[in-house]
Simulated scan of single mutants.
Amino acid sequence: MPDTHRLDELRHPQVESYLDRAETPTALIPVGTTEQHGEHLAMGTDAFIPTEICERIAEDVDALVGPPINYGASDMHAGYAGITYLTYRTLATVVHDIAYSLAEAGFTDIVFLSGHLTNDWAAKVGANQASHDLPEENYVYAFPYWDALSGDDMEEYLSFDAGWHANIGETAAVMAIDEDLVDLEETAFDAPDLPMDIENPAALLDHLLIGKGAYYRISETGVWGDPSDATAELGEEYFETITHAVAELINTFQDVRDEIYQRQRPDRAQEQW
């Protein structure tokens, strides 16, 4: 294989060679957005981070990385200048069609790695629809990269303490990719005043962010958290943690799924299928 694992940078014979060689031909598809991240952070943040993760783990999971989906289900940011978004239905269809065509081309596993919270809702619908339409030996699934993190790591990167958007975690990660994409002099601190005495305050997130233009309701600056202490070095530490966790999750799923599915699938369900 050449140095790159980017599907769009490889020539057709190189892709054929990978598909012939790989035990589990896998495509990693970053799913991002083009949306505001305060005044200090590039609008492509939610695409840059999962793309970087996919490229870093490609060798460890023996995968090729497809071009990122740079538009996402981010209508909650509608109203800010330059926002470009897809409807949830459209994003689900895009995910379905990409997965179907990649499976048709010879990939057995297609993984959509999201960098934006509400992308996950649509991406999982699209992945599920593709799974219905593809042979049983194909696996299509989607998850946001932070789902692989432990509770402690999540607390430091994305949380009520660290913030949820354009915060120190996202800002540091982008700085590790390219410091020119960040202007720390423009950072602002903002956070909605949420009641923290309920059983699970994180359960409020989906409700707060649902609906067109919803982000204006919770943040005047477009930021949720304090990004001012972000550094490229901190971002590199985050990437080391995140990439290990995501690669481990994908590899573990590939290792155990056939045994688990075979053991837990009732014979009568096989007959119905």
Rank of each mutant, 00 (worst) to 15 (best):
256 V>K: 03
181 L>D: 00
15 V>H: 02
218 I>A: 14
130 A>K: 01
14 Q>H: 11
193 D>Y: 06
189 F>H: 04
196 M>Y: 14
3 D>W: 09
92 A>S: 10
267 D>T: 11
264 Q>D: 11
5 H>Q: 12
122 A>V: 05
268 R>E: 15
99 A>M: 07
257 R>A: 12
1 M>L: 12
189 F>G: 05
200 N>M: 14
245 A>H: 11
17 S>H: 13
239 F>H: 08
259 E>N: 02
82 G>A: 14
73 A>I: 10
168 I>P: 03
25 P>W: 08
70 N>M: 01
42 A>E: 00
33 T>Y: 14
215 Y>F: 15
235 G>E: 05
17 S>D: 15
90 T>H: 06
22 A>R: 07
74 S>E: 00
43 M>W: 02
253 F>R: 11
33 T>Q: 00
14 Q>P: 06
250 I>T: 10
78 A>D: 12
216 Y>P: 05
3 D>E: 11
156 E>Y: 11
75 D>I: 06
92 A>K: 05
60 D>R: 15
161 D>K: 09
161 D>H: 10
139 Y>C: 01
106 G>D: 06
167 N>V: 04
209 L>N: 11
46 D>Y: 08
51 T>D: 10
251 N>D: 13
61 V>Y: 09
271 E>R: 12
188 A>K: 14
213 G>N: 15
241 T>M: 07
77 H>Y: 06
161 D>A: 12
223 V>R: 10
74 S>Y: 09
104 E>M: 01
236 E>N: 04
107 F>V: 07
156 E>N: 13
56 R>Y: 02
207 H>K: 06
118 T>R: 11
204 L>E: 15
42 A>I: 13
153 D>W: 06
126 G>Y: 01
58 A>I: 11
185 E>N: 12
236 E>P: 01
37 H>P: 01
42 A>Q: 10
23 E>M: 12
53 I>R: 09
60 D>L: 02
235 G>F: 09
266 P>F: 15
91 L>T: 10
137 E>A: 13
6 R>T: 08
164 W>M: 12
87 T>M: 04
233 E>A: 12
242 I>R: 05
97 D>R: 05
187 T>N: 00
83 I>T: 13
41 L>A: 07
14 Q>N: 07
76 M>C: 13
171 T>H: 02
237 E>L: 15
112 F>K: 01
8 D>E: 12
110 I>T: 14
197 D>W: 03
224 W>V: 14
217 R>D: 10
159 S>Y: 05
79 G>V: 02
208 L>M: 15
193 D>S: 03
201 P>E: 03
63 A>R: 00
143 F>D: 03
220 E>N: 13
133 D>Y: 01
200 N>R: 15
251 N>I: 09
13 P>Y: 09
16 E>Y: 04
176 A>P: 08
205 L>S: 04
115 G>A: 06
93 T>P: 00
141 Y>F: 15
115 G>C: 00
162 A>H: 02
19 L>C: 13
221 T>F: 04
195 P>C: 15
